[in-house]
Design a protein around this nucleic acid. Structure first.
Lengths: 104, 104
DNA sequence: CAAGTAGATTGACGTCTGTCGATACGAGTC
DNA sequence: GACTCGTATCGACAGACGTCAATCTACTTG
């Protein structure tokens, strides 16, 4: 696990700073809309999708979707790539796996 | 994985209801104090500890610790057992592993 | 039963967060 | 350059959340 908060996961007592770093990451995931976004990306071919394809299935306004994508991007769980007019987001599977490993 | 929200984890698109259930679980974990509590429990012999041993290392007031333990208990991540005057909390490692598996 | 102690509950407070409408920005197209 | 369309940012608002001091409850012991 190379996550930047807690080399030993939860198996060793966590200090406040490490706990806050890990909590920030988990908070990024702990939201229904963002979980739906991640699942949509993960289920998409190549693990990537255009924003235009992500807005409709979730049923939230476009600015809100944009906001959630930003949160995921800043957490490093998702990557952003502009292609002409459209923006494609792709899931960072390894980072998600690392996050998962911390809890295990 | 037997978590009650999303049989396929994130590999299939999540509907709103499943996403909300999973988010509730993740929110229970996505807090610095609760992560510290989990790590303390996990690092304790037998995965259990008395509340009296959990309060000091975290540096928050006793009611606040009690509140966080309640959140973890209601999420099913931790079990509560009264032994005379003291209350012992133990970590539910399997449930935590299941939660971890959803993200993987 | 009285006193002491461990833990839970209540009530209040400030802060953070998700959401939207309105608007701005940027890249293609005519 | 003007227009269009996809995406991001801004400002505002309601509701959720973490925290504490004060209080309450339950168990043990004298």
């Amino acid at each position: 696990m190379s996550i930047d908060c807690c080399p030993a996961g939860l198996t060793a007592p966590l200090d406040r700073a490490g706990a806050e770093r890990l909590a920030r990451l988990l908070k990024a995931v702990a939201d229904p809309a963002r979980l739906q976004l991640l699942s949509l990306l993960k289920a998409s071919p190549g693990g990537e999708a255009c924003v235009c394809d992500l807005t409709a299935p979730i049923g939230l306004s476009q600015p809100t979707i944009s906001h959630h994508l930003k949160v995921l991007t800043e957490a490093g769980l998702v990557n952003r790539e502009q292609r002409g007019t459209w923006v494609w987001y792709s899931i960072d599977g390894q980072r998600l796996a690392e996050l998962s490993a911390v809890l295990a």
